[in-house]
């Protein structure tokens, strides 16, 4: 387990994050959603190449710095910009790690778990970005440490790799590891973990993801309200950009995301902050074929191209045109969506 106690960091006269505390127990995965800057600083702090301005970080009861120096450290890391020895074959690379970490885990078993077994005679340089990412996960599995720190593990990877990573994370949790995920992508945080914190210069806020479970009741109320919707007042959705107000036609909007109570309209890859709350927007947008697919997302169903089922309880919606954009779909909403689509 990893414990962060009253940690704070400032540099060059500016606060990067004020004092906050959190902990990740065994069998738990938590995410810290933050800006790139905060994330980089956090990775430096966790890997011991920078030090806190105040507070401390403990790993399994010891300070993180003494743990890192220890031969039997409890930590293993996955950096975003990690590299492999391109000229080695996968098998050679795994064997190298195995010896380096004095690991007793079976190397073929590892390659099978990251679904690279069929490539084991190939050189690393022939792998795609996503396959290399899976290779890094092979290292995490080999290291077999009790605390795993991941930086943007599923950034830019293909769908298959995302599925593998998700599965591996479930496996690691089951084995009793604590996973801390650092990401700038809320969707990734929602997808990979169930405990999400947002960290910025104002501090740490835990996002209430658990509430999602109570939602069916709430949803019912809302769906009852929708018939009450009056004939179109204003069809356009206003967004504020630099003191200007821009009006969007609802069909233009791809999806709406809420973070920290602020709802953001996403239109053709650009994000515009909107004045209304997500609940208000839902009321306005439902008549235009929008759907509240998650506590913090409303999606334009016309733009949805694909519904991906990761596991029995986790789903994503992939939008048209932009392959990279996927939006979480919560379990309770899946049934509702199926009904709307006439699948049931």
């Amino acid at each position: 387990m990893i414990k962060i106690i009253n940690a704070e960091k400032s540099s060059h006269h500016s606060v990067i994050f004020p004092s906050f505390s959190m902990e990740v127990q065994t069998h738990e995965a938590a995410a810290i959603h933050s800006s790139l800057n905060v994330r980089t600083v956090l990775m430096d702090l966790l890997s011991g190449s920078a030090s806190l301005s105040g507070g401390r970080i403990e790993v399994c009861g010891h300070s993180i710095l003494s743990d890192l120096k220890n031969d039997n450290t409890h930590l293993s890391f996955l950096f975003l910009d990690e590299a492999l020895y391109e000229r080695l074959t996968l098998k050679e690379h795994i064997l190298f790690w195995k010896k380096l970490f004095i690991s007793s885990v079976n190397s073929d078993e590892i390659l099978r778990r990251v679904q690279l077994e069929h490539l084991k005679k190939k050189r690393i340089s022939t792998l795609t970005f996503s396959e290399k990412k899976r290779m890094h996960f092979a290292r995490i599995l080999l290291e077999n440490k009790s605390v795993v720190i991941l930086e943007e593990p599923d950034q830019n990877v293909d769908l298959e790799t995302r599925r593998v990573i998700k599965k591996l994370m479930e496996g690691l949790k089951k084995e009793g590891k604590s996973i801390l995920l650092l990401t700038g992508n809320m969707e990734s945080a929602l997808f990979m973990t169930d405990c999400i914190h947002r960290l910025d210069e104002k501090g740490l806020h835990q996002l209430d993801v658990k509430l999602e479970e109570d939602e069916p009741g709430e949803v019912k109320e809302e769906t009852e309200e929708t018939p009450l919707y009056q004939p179109v007042k204003i069809e356009k959705i206003p967004a504020k950009v630099n003191e200007k107000i821009i009006l969007f036609n609802p069909p233009e909007i791809d999806f709406v995301e809420s973070s920290d109570g602020q709802s953001n309209l996403s239109v053709q890859g650009e994000v515009y902050p909107c004045i209304f709350t997500l609940n208000d927007l839902e009321k306005r947008l439902v008549p235009f074929g929008f759907f509240r697919c998650h506590r913090s997302y409303i999606v334009n169903l016309q733009k949805v191209r694909e519904i991906i089922t990761w596991t029995r309880n986790s789903y994503s919606l992939v939008l048209e045109g932009s392959e990279s954009i996927s939006i979480p779909l919560s379990k309770s909403k899946m049934a509702e969506l199926k009904e709307m689509l006439g699948l049931k």
Binding site: L68, T73, F77, F79, D81, A83, Y85, L100, F101
Partner: peptide
């Protein structure tokens, strides 16, 4: 960028 991996290893 592989040296960091070695440095972080035991």
């Amino acid at each position: 960028n592989t040296l960091r991996g070695l440095m972080l290893s035991p």
